[in-house]
Design a protein around this nucleic acid. Sequence first.
RNA 1: GGGCUUGUAGCUCAGGUGGUUAGAGCGCUACACUGAUAAUGUAGAGGUCCGUGGUUCGAGUCCACGCAGGCCCA
Length: 1152
Amino acid sequence: MTYQQYDSLDYAQVAAEVLTYWNQNQVFEQSVALRDGQPDAPTNRFTFYEGPPSANGTPGIHHVMARTIKDIFCRYKTLRGFQVERKGGWDTHGLPIELQVEKELGITKDDIGKTISVEEYNRRCRETVMRFTDQWNDLTQKMGYWVDLDNPYITYKNQYIESVWSLLRQLYDKNLLYKGYTIQPYSPKAGTGLSSHELNQPGTYKDVRDTTVVAQFKAKLTGKSAYLFDAAESDDVYILAWTTTPWTLPANSALTVGKDIDYVLVRTFNAYTYQLVNVVLAKALVSRWFAEKNRVENMYDPAFDAYLLSEHTASQPIPWAVVMDMKGEHLTDIEYEQLMPYVQPSTPAFRVILGDFVTTEDGTGIVHTSPTFGADDFRVAQVAGIPPIMVKDETGKDVPIVDKQGRFVAEITDFAGRYVKEEYYSDEDRSDPDFKATDVLIAIKLKEENKAFRVEKYEHPYPHCWRTDKPILYYPLDSWFIRTTAVKDRLVELNKTINWQPESTGTGRFGNWLENLVDWNLSRSRFWGTPLPIWRSESGEEVCVGSIKELVDLATTALESGKLSDEQHERNDKFVTVVAGSALDPSVSFDLHRPYVDEIYLISPNGQLMQRESDLIDVWFDSGAMPYAQWHYPFENKEVFERSFPADFISEGVDQTRGWFFTLHAIGVMLFDSVAFKNVVSTGLVLDKNGNKMSKRLGNAVDPFQTLAKYGPDATRWYMITNAEPWDNLKFNVDGIGEVQRRFFGTLFNTYNFFALYANLDGYSIDSTRATDWVSREQLPELDRWILSKLNTLIRDVTEQYESYNPTKAGRLVQDFVTDQLSNWYVRLSRRRFWAGGTSQGELSLDKRAAYQTLQQCLVTVSQLMSPIAPFFADWLHRNLTSGQQPDATNSVHLTNWYSVDEAAIDTDLERSMELAQEVSSLVHSLRKGHKLKVRQPLSRVLIPVLSSDTRRQIEHVAPIIMAEVNVKAVDFVDDASGILKKKVKPNFKALGPRFGKQMKDVAAAITAMTSDELKSLEQAGTLHLDPYTLQLSDVEILTEDIPGWLVASEDGLTVALDVTVTDELRREGIARDLVNRIQNLRKDQGFDVTDKIRIELEPTDALLVEAVQMNSDYIRQEVQAVSLDLISDLNGNATEIDMDEFRLRLKVVVA
RNA sequence: GGGCUUGUAGCUCAGGUGGUUAGAGCGCUACACUGAUAAUGUAGAGGUCCGUGGUUCGAGUCCACGCAGGCCCA
């Protein structure tokens, strides 16, 4: 065979060609089919779950990153012999799609059902969601992501929805699905809840001036509070709490303090009633409410009596004194009198509780808590067992004291029917001179009742509804929940069995969050999503539907009941006819989305009409349900599901910790008591090169298609993977791809081309099936055995990294091997072996075969080790090196078996030897440079002081390599016995530390000051007494310092001395080598072929030159392939004149 | 405000369990090599290891408190 040679390489072109090859030969399909030995043997399977992207937007460069990670481990496991099926998928539901449709149609959610029908809206969503599928498929192909996109799961399909329903039904049956409420942003004027997304729109937060109240909550005298009453010597002890929403005060049922916050009890007077009060507030906020100048020494100060007896005016200074200090935890469980007793709670309330959200930034450090109007309040109250203040509506249901229009209910007698926010009144109402806001009326009432400590206007930002421009309320809204808290312990426990990469995401970000889990709010008030399959009657009868068949049966029963209206009957009939008529095939043209599903009516056992709860479910449930729903489990594919659950591996962005990672885990644990995935790699963000988030708006987003077209997928993937570990944020800089391309791929390509050039010249090809072609290990030269040892060490280390899901380290190892060891050392030092000798004898020399065989083996192995990361280039390289061996259609690196480590090839002693050779060479180069002795000038010897026979042996081993590399005639050693070695001793801190501790400084000084006699005695006896310390040999490091009269360089304990004497003979050799160099240049300048023989004629312009030529004639002729080298006194005009260092050269070179 | 995370040369990143002189690549400068050649090698310059305290004989590394960036939550 011949090896394809290349002048230059277009990496994108290479990838395109390889892609064509893959497609033509179905290499991906082959790679899966190949491992189809034992389909039921779990050890042979590696299951990957695709976290589906949404095709309603175009892919970005970060998708290349995320998918590269996924691809790497699936490819790697395939090479390891696993069958890795990768079913693709599309995420199709959710708010972004609704918003996009609304934007395109220029409508808002208000218009749905008015200017646009729900059917039409639904249809538009369905179209939008797959809009960019083509671009996604294109990216998938071009970046080399192997995933089955021919049979993807699609979350809006009826099969998928039916599976989701079945899961919900199972949760429902386990009593893990229930209806409750949460506190959400709510717009009374729009009559709807707002998502956090809507709340984050620009302009929703506006500065408003609200009436704020510091209310006085009167403490009750109990065991818990007695110490306050004792200290105050008074019955009037109040707890102060500040609120910017006084209208929530009638709903107060608790006060929240911070456990470790410092509080004080202050004696003072109420500014409105002038009554003596003792108030509790945070110490840090005393200055916020009390002027320092009015402070008095203590509670017995005469200023208090004086104030009491005075005529009170508003501007009169009010004296105050701190009575005592306490921590928040000492206030816990103190009871107080209800501030505005309109409505009584069902269970005991009105006490002080702890909360982690309390700060001393503002207010009093004590938070007025009303569980119906604050999310934090709701949460802490629930934990502390504090009931909300609620009233019964006409159906007997508990509702808050503010109705859905934002007005107080009748029970709040004084304010019944009043809007709680003044902005809800019309402009006309508000312009009435007598108009007073409800907050103001409440403040007045509290002042009169000695319940207001301070009332003031306060400007602060407050969220507004983006549709009505009116302030929102935080308000309890009905929701369906999954009772994840019921299985919290199991969630935590099973999470500990998952291998998280990086670990901190699993234990920290995810683990901590699980510890503080709340129930999963499943409800979304939207249109385009999986409908909640629960039907309910007015009186609360309900049914959770778990399959299409069940729904058909129920609808049929309803039809037969005779209780449906004509229209309801017609709708149900349509549904039943279509679905039942198709034998329940879920792919029939009945849409389970809104509005159609809402038009199915059921009848309860009591004969009441049941309608579907209007909620959709959180799209995250769709995603978390994919292990089951992608197979339409449990309706179909039971075995397929069972053998592919749980996943061995998944990967997504770290920002999805509480998204997909959680929902997969939660559903798996709740329904199957199992983890849903065993290994997970969470990936960081891809930022722009300045570390800013990429966004289309800012214009700093990188177009993945352009990048792939310019640099090719391999360099792009390699750069992304090796530059930063996947979970670190990547600062994406295209210059970095160029660097990877030059440094790694360029070097590898050059190395291959070098191999191909000579292999073709020599007609060399390797047939791995014929063992006789192989040079046995014993016969391999040192250099070959060394690089093969390195190669096997590399296989071992790279395998280890892939196994532990660290592609970055794997890639860096391969890269360092290729650039540093293989190219820079092995190939450079072996170059001569490839061109030396010819093929004229017909047989290649053993050494030459060894060189080809070794280099080929290295390259083939590298192609496999790199193939998970750079699949195209690796396959290109692999097939270039091997295409003679196998029928083409099945030849791909991706169809090979992972190389096992040849332990016998690993020779750490040899590796150490070569390291020493590299170090010695580097030191000699450094010395040469320092003395301006170029490498072409041979020198007689280097001298290496050695203290151990091991080191000596190891260097001797590679002395020929050193000699060739640095152009010296000999490598000599000086050991201890020579007597000329000067030794230096250094303390070994690591050994000394534990023994001497504080005395280290003294010991170190004593060691450094050691005389050479003392050192000698330490070396001989193995121990030395340096008063007052006794030292062991292992307590010191002995280094050689220098050799008197020699040039030395040292590094890492290794010292090298160079003999820089240039004898006449060396000088002549140097000139000869210079001459060779010039002639080689001429050969090239004149465009001679590598194999051309030449004749040389040379003018004897210099005596030294003549001598050099005469004495080294054989050498020169051999090097430049000259058949003759003649000294001719007069080369007329056609001689070339060349500058040598010390003289000019005239010569003529012609092809023989 | 909370959880997690990052901060080391101009840039991108390495730096098990603490050990005294902190490394690599790119870029820069100089030199070398010239049968891998729009390739390659060697050397040099370049550091307040984010800051402040602490533990220790010794801190880039451990602890505390900050600062700055990021993600996810409130």
